[in-house]
Structure formats: C-alpha cells, structure tokens
C-alpha cells in the first residue's frame, strides 16, 4: 500500500484555460485589438456575415479574420477576397478552439496593427461555448432554418453570448413556423442581458444595427484600454 496524501485542489477543471484566456485578453487590451469570438452551427452564415460586415467597416477599422476549421482553407480564401487580412487555423480534429490555440494563432497572425479581429470558431453549437477563447466579446449566429427552439436545446452558447444575430431573415416568409417573438423570449430566458439583432447577410437587412453594435463595443473597449 502506497502512502498517499490528500491534496485539496478545489479548482475548476478548466482553470488553466481560464488563465490563458485572461492572459490573452490582457495582451489584446495592451495593444488595443478588439477580438470578437463568432460562433454558430455549420452553415448558419458566419463567413457570409463577415464578408458583408467587412465591406461596411473596412474604411473605419483595420480588420483581420482568424478562421478556425477542422480542415481546408475555403473560408480564409473567401475572406481574403474582401481585402481583410485572413489566417486559417486548423484545429486538427478538435471540435472547438481553446485559449491556447487562439493565442498561438494571434501571435502568428500579428494583431498589433489591427483594430478589429473576428475569430470564426469551428461550426458547432455545443463545444465552443465551453471554452473561453480570450476574446473581448462573444457573438453567435442562429439562422432561421435551424428553428426557433435552439435556445432551449443548446442553452449554454446563448447564455455566454453578448450578442445573438438571427440570420437569414429573408427566408422568414417560407419558414413561417419560426417566430421572432418566440425566439426572443427563449433567448431572454437563458440570457436576459444579451443583444438580439435580426439580420440577413444576403439582403443586408439589420446590418446597420449590427455595425452600430460593433462600433459601440469597440469604442467602449478603447475607453477602457
């Protein structure tokens, strides 16, 4: 029988990730780079939303995009066509990005001369919500065809998001069982404080409000830095 001693730990399992995330946030604050973690399920329109957002804001901010995917570089190439700087990170099969992977990407990317960096997380409505990436704010996209019951089925991502974009509003007439009121109420149940913006990356509906949200948050971030 070995002589074991009990050591009380009482730390979160993800304590090391939380520490990495906090360190990255400090670094970003020091260099004045606003990092937004953008999450959604696959196909909700992260890349097309970014393309339109960049077109609206590229004269005001120096913008970069870090694309996280399990494989391929199609998204990074789409973004590079907008003129924004893009980098592709491969998670090597992992279903999410953690703070250490994000920090490595940020270092390689070199963000000192950028005002606004979007982190396009792996398309997945579950795992990315569990890991703090070190971003300044969290945003998520829910698209109309996915259904207005998603805040009930995948509560955590709605709970940790500072803003929820409801995308593909142009197809609401077809998906008429999706209710704006119901989805708002269901998101509010999980997160009474987040902003909810109805948009269409295809038609541009709601993008003035979304661009306004980004301008406001970036200006608040700069005031605090």
């Amino acid at each position: 029988m070995k002589d074991y001693k009990v050591i009380e730990v009482k730390e979160s399992i993800l304590a090391d990730n939380d520490a990495d995330a906090e360190a990255l946030r400090q670094e970003l604050r020091a260099e004045g780079t606003f990092l937004l973690n953008l999450m959604s399920s696959p196909g909700a329109g992260k890349t097309s939303t970014l393309v339109r957002t960049i077109a609206m804001l590229k004269d005001e901010f120096r913008i970069g995009v870090m694309e996280a995917d399990i494989d391929s570089d199609v998204d990074a190439r789409t973004i590079a066509d907008t003129g924004a700087r893009a980098i592709q990170i491969h998670t090597g099969g992992m279903c999410h990005l953690d703070a250490d992977m994000t920090r490595q990407g940020i270092r390689e990317f070199g963000t000192k001369d950028l005002d606004l960096v979007f982190l396009e997380n792996v398309g997945n409505l579950v795992c990315p919500a569990e890991f703090d990436t070190g971003a300044v704010k969290n945003a998520m996209i829910l698209s109309v065809p996915e259904g207005d019951d998603k805040p009930l089925k995948y509560p955590l991502m709605f709970q940790i998001s500072d803003v929820v974009l409801i995308n593909k509003c142009d197809v609401l007439p077809v998906f008429d069982d999706f209710s704006r009121e119901r989805v708002t109420e269901r998101i509010r149940l999980r997160n009474p404080d987040c902003d909810i913006i109805f948009v269409s990356a295809k038609t541009g509906e709601g993008f003035d409000e979304w661009a306004g949200w980004l301008r406001r948050e970036i200006s608040r971030f700069r005031d605090r830095s």
Partner: peptide, 29 residues
Amino acid sequence: MHEMGIIIHLAKTLDKVAEENRVTRIGSV
C-alpha cells in the same frame, strides 16, 4: 465530443498542482 478536450485541460491543471506540491505519483483524482 469535447470531453477529451476537457481532459487535456484537467491534465495541465494537475501538472501545475503536482509541481507546487512536489507530487511524484497521483493515486486518485
């Protein structure tokens, strides 16, 4: 599917605790 990702973080935290407490072998967690 993220259970494995969480375990990698758990191991890192345990490494830190082990170093602070001069642990040579962990019997149970």
